[in-house]
Amino acid sequence: MKTNIYLNNEKFIAGITLRDENELEQGNMALHTCINPDEVLENRKKLAVLIGCGLDQFVCANQTHSANIHKVSLADKGSGAESKDTAIPNTDALYTYEPNLLLCSFTADCVPVTFYNELNGLIGVIHSGWQGTVKEISLKTFEHLKQVENCNPIDFHIHIGTALSQGKFEVDEDVYEKFKKLGYADDFMYYNDQTHKYHIDNQQTVKKQCELAGIPSDHITIDSTCTFLNPEGFSYRQDKKAGRHLSFIMRKQVIY
């Protein structure tokens, strides 16, 4: 199971699974887009063993490119882990204070965001495709955490995972206009005179939303690997039947 673990300390573990031609369904982790659900479950079980948790600790959402946020409780343990029918409905951002729950987000070109709060232990994942970005899901999530959970934005650390690069994310004027209306994405777009298409950097736009929420830029890391160009990437734009990466984060149970 090819996995990029980018955080693993005494408090947290976080990472993303990668495409691997030697794995079942090339390492696909998504039940909502697969050939054989049993093979996806085998992949998830492999990941669970790798990071030292059980499949019943996974918490998955039915992602709909919304700006909806869900606070995960112990009652949500196992949601969507073995069946898409039990996933948390209509949600693209999850967060929790609870230890030993693996929060999951599925992407193939969309921007995956994982985050943790060093002070209070809060963790979360965000799925931000371009539709989620123009709905400002990342900005709204961190504003929610400031207002409802009384979090200080300077305590957050954020990782923006592998996604479709600006060079490969070409759109027509209608999508460009939606980003233009945000008022802060101009620096992350350019027009190609030859193809008459606009190119948008979704990762940088998401980073800007995090900064607008008050998160220091040096607390934000970006994996600029392109899902379209990288053989370890799942790309919906390249292959409509593509599998999905699983971005994950878990707060460890600290025993004193």
Rank of each mutant, 00 (worst) to 15 (best):
M1I: 15
N4D: 14
N4A: 08
L7F: 01
N9I: 02
E10P: 00
E10H: 03
I13V: 15
A14S: 09
L18I: 04
N22V: 02
Q26L: 10
Q26D: 15
T33F: 05
N36F: 03
D38Q: 11
D38Y: 05
E42R: 06
R44N: 01
K46E: 09
V49P: 00
G54I: 03
L55G: 05
C60S: 10
S66H: 05
L74P: 04
D76G: 13
S79L: 01
S79C: 13
G80P: 09
S83A: 12
K84R: 07
K84Q: 14
T86Y: 08
N90P: 12
T91F: 08
A93K: 02
N100S: 15
S105P: 01
F106W: 10
D109S: 11
C110V: 01
T114L: 07
Y116G: 00
L119F: 07
N120V: 02
G121R: 06
G121P: 07
L122T: 00
L122H: 00
G124E: 04
I126W: 02
S128I: 07
W130R: 02
Q131T: 11
G132M: 03
L139M: 12
H144N: 13
Q147H: 05
C151V: 09
I158R: 02
H159K: 03
I160G: 04
S165L: 06
F169V: 09
D172W: 04
E173C: 07
K181H: 07
L182P: 02
G183K: 03
Y184W: 07
F188C: 09
F188S: 09
M189I: 14
Y191C: 00
N192D: 15
N192G: 06
Q194V: 10
D201Y: 01
N202L: 09
V206P: 03
C210F: 04
C210Y: 04
E211V: 09
S217G: 10
H219K: 11
I220Y: 03
I222G: 11
S224K: 15
S224N: 14
T227G: 13
L229I: 04
S235A: 05
Y236K: 13
Q238E: 09
D239E: 09
K240A: 10
K240V: 09
K241A: 06
G243Q: 02
H245F: 06
L246S: 02
R251G: 04
V254K: 10
